[in-house]
Structure formats: C-alpha cells, structure tokens
Design a binder for these strands. Sequence first.
DNA 1: AGTATGGAACGAACGGTGTTTGTTCCTGGA
DNA 2: TCCAGGAACAAACACCGTTCGTTCCATACT
Lengths: 266, 266
Amino acid sequence: MTIARDKAQRGRLGVAPPPWAGPKAAQAGRAGRADKPQLSREAIVAAAMRIVDGEGLDAVSMRRIAHEFGTGAASLYAYVANKDELLDLIFDWVMGETADRWPETEPTADNWRDLARDTIRLAHEVLTSHRDVARAFQGRIPFGSNGLRLVEIQLAIMRAGGVPDGVAAFAGDLIGQFLISWAVEDDMWRTRFADADEERIAGQMAEIRDYLAALPADRFPNVVALAGPLMSQQPEGLDRFELGLEVLLRGIASFAADARERDGKD
Amino acid sequence: MTIARDKAQRGRLGVAPPPWAGPKAAQAGRAGRADKPQLSREAIVAAAMRIVDGEGLDAVSMRRIAHEFGTGAASLYAYVANKDELLDLIFDWVMGETADRWPETEPTADNWRDLARDTIRLAHEVLTSHRDVARAFQGRIPFGSNGLRLVEIQLAIMRAGGVPDGVAAFAGDLIGQFLISWAVEDDMWRTRFADADEERIAGQMAEIRDYLAALPADRFPNVVALAGPLMSQQPEGLDRFELGLEVLLRGIASFAADARERDGKD
DNA sequence: AGTATGGAACGAACGGTGTTTGTTCCTGGA
DNA sequence: TCCAGGAACAAACACCGTTCGTTCCATACT
C-alpha cells in the first residue's frame, strides 16, 4: 500500500509534493475491494486520457470516467481532490509523454537553436495528438514532476545558447503559452472542418478571404490588401506554426546576442 | 424596428455580417412589451460585461444575465442564438473598447515599433481590466466589426515597418494569442492571491522558490540554479509582460530586417 | 374598427455538470 | 475473533445550456 501511495505521490520521479499541492496529493490508493477493476490515480488519469483521445475534452466528466470503471462519480474522490486536480494530473501526464520521447542530447552553443526548435516541435506534436486537451492546460504551472523534467531540458538548452538567465527562465513560460494557444487553435480548425473534404475546406477559406477582400477599402485598406496572406496557411512559405516558432526563437536569440556583445565590451 | 435590426446586425460599423455568422446574426430586436426594461443584443452584452467585471467569467450564465432583466434564460434566446454567440459578441465588445481608446497616429518606418508596443500595451490593459474575460476569447477569430478595426490598425503598423506581408498577416494572430494567454495568467495570479497582502504573496513565492532550489541538483541542475529567476516577477529588470512583448517585437522586426537586406541586394 | 398573425416573453422541463453527504461493507491488523 | 478505518457508492444539491409549449400583445391588413 505504501508502494501505491508513493507511486501516486511521486509520479515518475522521486520528488516530494510541492508546497502548493492540495492535501489529496499525499493520500493513499489502498487495495479496496478485490473483485472490481482496481481504482487508482494512474488508472483514473489513464481512463481520462482514453476519453480525451476518443471523444475530446468535453466528454471528460467525473461521471463519464467513473462509468469507465463501472461505478459512480463519488468513487473518484477518494483518489482525486476535485476535477481541477485531475486536470493537473492529466497535464503532467502529457508532459511526461513529451519528456519520455525527448532524445537526450547535450546542448551546445552551436546546436542550441536546433535543439530548442526540436523540443518545441515535439511538444507541439504530442499536444496536438490528444485532441483539444490543451484547452485544459492554460494557466497551469509546469511544476509537476514531469513538467519539471521539461523545464530542466529547456533551461539547459537556453543556457547553452548564452541566453541570459532571466530571459531563459521566462522563455519557458512564453513557449508554453505559445504551444498551448497553437494546439487549441489547431484543434478548433480541425473540428470546424471535421467532416469536410479538402475541397470544401478550401472553398470556405476562399469565402472568408473574399469577404475580407470585399470590405470597404477606404476604411480597411490593409485588411483588403492582405486578405490573401491573412487566410493563407503558409504565409511566408512556412507553416504557420513554424513561422511563430521562428519569431519566438529569433526574439529569444536576440537577447543571447545582446549578452554576448555586452560581455565582449566589458 | 429596422433601425434596431441594423444596429444589432452591424455593431459599430457599416459592415455586413460575415459568411460564417449564424442565422441569428441578422435577426431583429423588435419593440416587445413596453413596460419591461428593454431587452436587446446590446443590453444583454452590457449586462454580461457588468457581471464579468463584478464577479468574473464563471458567473456569466444565461440564467444570471436574464435575472438582471427580471426574466428567465429562455428570453435571451430571442436575441442570441446560444451562449457561444454571446461570447462572440462580448469578444467584439472588448475589441471595440480597445479600438475606441486607440489614438490614431500615422505609422511610419521610424515609429512603427513604438506604435506596435503601445497598441499591444493598450490591448493588454483593456483585456486585464475585465477580470478573466480573456479565458473566453481563445480560439476566436477577430473578424467581428470591431475586431477588424484592430486588425487594420495592426496591419498598418507592421507594413509601415517593412514587415513582409505574410509575416504581418500572421503576426496579428501571434500577438492576439500572446495577449490572451497573458491576460489569463495575470488573472490566475490575481485570484490566487486575492485576499493576501503583499507580504503573504512574497512569502508564498519564496516558498515555491525554495522548493525549486531544494530539488535534487544532480537531476535538475538548471532548475535549482535558476529558482530565483523562475519565480521573479521582473526576470531581466523588465515586467514579465514587457519581456514577452520585447521578444515578440524583436522576432517580428528581424523579418523586416531580412526583407530590407534582401531588397537591398536585389 | 375589427381581426389575424408573428414574434417576444416566459415557466417548466430535459439531460447534463461538479461536488457533498451519509451509509454500507470489506479487509488488514490487533 | 473482533474492530477500526477506509473504499465504494447511491442519492441528493445546486447549478448549467438549451428546448418546448404556451400566453399575450403590438402591429399590419382587411
């Protein structure tokens, strides 16, 4: 039983629960009735992920998860303080998947930008592979045990690139928000055109573009002029996500360049 | 009555409803019973904003809004197709407030970065002045009549700065997401420490910092080393929001620099 | 002037939501 | 063998967005 408690408590890492964690974070997952499919924190999160992947985030309700175990919602509250804590666990679960898939490479001053790009791409891939789960991640701090693994990786890369500590510490937030925003928007477009074929998507896009192009040109000269690029999926020959990523990386890198110059002069 | 319809239909601008708008967007707001406080699209949005400002986004329910008019939720559905459309209207309302407060200045190649910074700061100020309303804005496209005004302003500034059209068209999305993410996180911290004084906030921050600093240094060397900057509100002597803004602007500006160089060589 | 009509208003209900409460019942330890 | 404690769980609470069916009245037409 203490094994179960420790597993529930520590996740995949030997790290004590953080000070802001609720009291439930330290509770047990004892044996319980033997003839029923075992209920546990991990099993609950796994079930929730199954539902997310199959039916989307909105389908994840306490009743729906409990139904997966053939019981009622109340049973879950022995393992999870409330739904928000469950979402925290899901958050860290996805972070864990990302961290597990990341091939450890020693970051250097030469390869740091490529490594940063790769981690962010990987995180994007994982995030978007779980439907609209990212919608539940906004405003969460990645200080769960798996989140910290990712933060550590990111910090190592940034520091290897000569990014000032203050900027490096902050860049993780910025990148995280970028990833979540993009995953949410990705899913929105995906569900908006869920059952449409390529042709109909293009048709609807063209319809919006034409609407923008037909706006009064005296009041919206730039919107009218840029109706095409505004609705383009590859504005500068790049995927929209890649373009945002590039903007972010260039912005961050410029602080590294500043620091280098400053150190050179001092 | 046609006047009321036109007002409801067009908002603050003489722009026809876009092709993706629901059928309700063209419906009327007729006189109705005379002895009751007049119900209308505008009045409903205004009431919703009052509730958001006073009690936060979660308090905005159809029943709660209807209660403001002394009626039931069903009455609202004569003016608004569903809650999502209402949130669209709220979105555009906030965009309108932002656009109204923006002093029109002709953007030039010299002042474009300052202007961009100012617009984004203004939008941030407006957004955070309405509690957690930004949480409802994610995934919405700013192509309502007021949203388009802001898009137009942004595009004009970017193009004056020599930002390539494709990047300029895309930058609006990026900035919008940045603003929304930041507003959501802003409000999260504000409500987390809602009733705490300055001293207790600092105490809790220090507690988390100490937790990070006390992590096993062999597995989390960079998290341990940067525990301070990670929890700092002004990582590089700048407000966190200002730092993110700077990263974004530098990234975008670098594309303008690329374009200048390319044109010079050709 | 009288009447038909269409839309606003609205109470009630439907099928959900997260969470709490109170109870039953099993199991590990004394 | 007995007991304490915790898991399991049904029912209830207070909400939610939305729909349905009805009432009622201002307007538009005859």
